[in-house]
């Protein structure tokens, strides 16, 4: 069942993808993808491993070039040929692999490529801004002057998220941002996503955690084997989402659920 966008997603479209395809040699990672993101809307992108979610995000971040299709951003057709260009236009990304420089400290990573006063870097101002951003995320980071290599996985993830907020982007893409986060930090990230949305920005959230997705998403876009497989809302039943993701109503998830149900029944 496919639903049209309703509710807060009615703002003007910031991003409009038409017929996006991406080929890695013989592998077709994306094929004919359509995706709209409106101002003040959280779009969740879900799909199984290898469905092409990260590839789509990288195309939008300027990391990969699409083999076909068009990208319309703020009403104009654009080519995102470098990551720098995407950032400049206000498209910020938290990559699945985080893309941090382990040899640099937290402040340097946050401001990488966007240092305050490039000819005489203002370390104090950068450090203050870094702490402010990190505290917004309820980050637990002992020191912003330690190299990234000494941080835990979740702390690194927080740094990557903080970095994406630095430039006050129009649209922010989070590729599994909460995968390594603790309970409180996950809640803060979900709060943050809502705050960003309320400021009128667009958010693309990729997550395998359906609870998180349902909690914040206005629309849920399902990718399957590199193709669109329907658009749903947070009210869609779990069952229905799972079958859209896996491609069959009879799948390993439903079989497992049924088995559990049986076991419980036998116990009684």
């Amino acid at each position: 069942m496919t639903l049209e966008a309703t509710g807060p997603g009615d703002g003007e479209p910031i991003l409009r993808l038409r017929g996006i395809g991406k080929q890695f040699g013989a592998v077709t990672a994306l094929e004919d993808i359509e995706l709209d993101v409106h101002a003040g809307e959280v779009v969740a992108l879900v799909g199984d491993n290898g469905a092409g979610k990260s590839t789509l995000v990288k195309v939008l971040a300027g990391v990969h070039q699409p083999t076909s299709g068009t990208i319309e951003y703020l009403g104009r057709q654009v080519t995102l040929d470098t990551p720098g260009k995407a950032l400049e236009m206000g498209i910020a990304t938290v990559f699945q692999d985080l893309a941090l420089c382990e040899n640099l400290d937290v402040v340097a990573n946050l401001f990488l490529g966007h240092e305050i006063s490039p000819w005489r870097m203002d370390e104090v101002q950068m450090e203050v801004r870094a702490w402010t951003l990190l505290q917004e995320l309820a980050a637990r980071i002992p020191s912003v002057r330690e190299p990234i290599a000494s941080l835990s996985g979740g702390q690194r993830q927080t740094v990557a998220i903080a970095r994406s907020l630095l430039l006050d982007p129009h649209i922010i893409m989070l590729d599994e941002p909460t995968a390594a986060l603790g309970v409180a930090q996950t809640a803060e990230v979900l709060n943050l996503i809502e705050r960003v949305r309320d400021r009128g920005h667009g958010v693309i959230l990729i997550s395998h955690n359906m609870e998180d997705v349902r909690a914040v998403a206005d629309r849920i876009v399902v990718l399957r084997l590199g193709k669109n497989n329907g658009v749903y809302t947070a009210d869609t039943s779990h069952q229905e989402l799972v079958s859209a993701i896996t491609g069959a109503s009879e799948n390993s998830v439903s079989r497992r659920a049924a088995r559990k149900l049986e076991e419980v029944g036998e116990d009684k």
Binding site: A61, V63, G84, E88, A99, C101, N103, L104, L112, H114
Partner: peptide, 14 residues
């Protein structure tokens, strides 16, 4: 330093 540490991360930072 960034390029020397992780060139791809540096590229993605613009």
């Amino acid at each position: 330093f960034a390029v020397g540490g992780n060139a791809e991360a540096a590229r993605r930072s613009g």
